[in-house]
Simulated scan of single mutants.
Amino acid sequence: MSTSGKNAGSTQNQQVRGRPFAPGNRGRPKGARNRSTLAVEQMLDGEAEALARKAIEMALDGDGPAMKLCLDRLLSPRRDRAITFALPVIESAADLPRATEAMLQAVASGEITPSEAADIGKAVSAHIEAVTAAEMAQRLARLEEAGA
């Protein structure tokens, strides 16, 4: 008796792992829908208005999940908001401490949220990198002029 596994002799019929489809067959076409989804859509076809009316009635009667469903459909998801606070001009790396202090003060006073400050911090970091690169290019140009 062999102890190497239950299908040791049938390796010819086994498919190679990691390659479930034959070459050229990439599976379900893009945009194709599941059969169960199509079946449910057919059952609900023509009932959307009645279902929506019932959900609204349930929400108006105080059903919490129905309220959430209706409000989720009525209100668009919250996007980034425009924020206004005093951020000092950053012309060199020496200006960075004043900018970060302004961000910390804005968070501490509630003008902006910590996540908004983090996003602003990323923008400030990118600006500092650009300022530093420009300063380096100017220094290099001066050194090349002096060496010529």
Rank of each mutant, 00 (worst) to 15 (best):
A137Q: 09
E91G: 15
D63W: 04
A134H: 12
D61L: 14
V40T: 14
D72M: 07
E116F: 01
A134T: 11
Q42G: 10
E57I: 08
A102H: 01
T37Q: 12
D45H: 10
K68L: 15
E129N: 07
Q105N: 10
V131D: 03
E135W: 03
R98Y: 11
S115R: 14
T84A: 03
D63S: 08
A93G: 08
Q105K: 08
M67H: 09
A137F: 00
A133R: 10
M58P: 02
D72L: 06
L75E: 15
L69K: 10
Q138G: 09
D80P: 09
E49C: 11
I128V: 13
L104F: 10
L51W: 08
A93E: 09
R73Y: 12
R73Q: 12
K54Y: 15
M43L: 15
M58Y: 06
Q105W: 09
T113P: 03
D72R: 06
I90E: 04
V124P: 02
R98T: 06
L51T: 05
I120F: 10
L44S: 06
I56D: 14
I56C: 07
E41M: 13
S76F: 07
L74E: 08
P97Q: 01
A99C: 02
S125K: 14
A118Q: 12
T84V: 00
A55T: 07
R139W: 07
P65S: 01
L74H: 10
K122E: 12
R98E: 07
R81T: 11
L74F: 15
L38Q: 09
E47S: 13
D80M: 07
E129H: 05
M67V: 11
E116V: 05
D72W: 04
E129Y: 00
A99F: 01
A82L: 15
I90Q: 05
Q138S: 13
L44Q: 08
D61W: 15
I120S: 09
G62R: 03
T132W: 03
L69V: 08
A93W: 04
A99S: 01
C70R: 14
E47R: 15
R79W: 09
D61G: 10
G64W: 06
L74D: 14
S76M: 06
S76Q: 08
E47I: 13
A55G: 05
R73G: 15
D119W: 04
A52R: 15
H127I: 10
D95Q: 01
